[in-house]
């Protein structure tokens, strides 16, 4: 058993109630968030892939892949995520270049928006007969 695996298995067993274990903190990073995972150095970096499915739509996160550099990441993304004509444009972003909000900040980040109902058009009453609003 390699040293690396031993370590990671040890961590899996770590109690991590409340708050985040070191491992969780890192794993947070994934799914469009920062951080090369694990300590393995031999593998190529992780890239997050965003695809514009059709003209008029924005790029959407579709998944991730490994590639040694941006050129290959882009080509791998083409082969992996658009085999069935799923896209007209691709972005690849190094996972390590993404800064994400942390779970502890989640409420501070997002809850304040919850009471600002006036930002949504459904907040407003439209007088009967008023069209094109």
């Amino acid at each position: 058993m390699s040293e690396r695996t031993e370590r990671s298995e040890g961590r899996e067993g770590m109690p991590s109630r409340h708050g985040m274990s070191e491992r969780t903190e890192r794993s947070e990073g994934r799914e469009g968030m920062p951080g090369r995972l694990g300590m393995s150095s031999s593998s190529s970096p992780l890239w997050e892939v965003f695809v514009r499915a059709r003209r008029g739509l924005s790029h959407t996160h579709v998944g991730s892949l490994h590639a040694p550099d941006a050129e290959l990441a882009l080509r791998n993304a083409r082969d992996l995520y658009t085999r069935r004509q799923e896209g007209v444009s691709i972005w690849v972003v190094p996972a390590s270049a993404i800064t994400a909000s942390s779970p502890d900040e989640k409420d501070a980040f997002f809850d304040p928006a919850a009471d600002k109902v006036y930002r949504h058009p459904t907040f407003y009453e439209v007088p009967e007969g008023a069209a094109h609003l």
């Binding site: 190529s44 791998n76 082969d79 992996l80």
Partner: peptide, 11 residues
């Protein structure tokens, strides 16, 4: 050599 490359060669 890489699983990603497997897909590229098949394409």
């Amino acid at each position: 050599p890489e699983m990603e490359e497997d897909i590229a060669l098949a394409n």
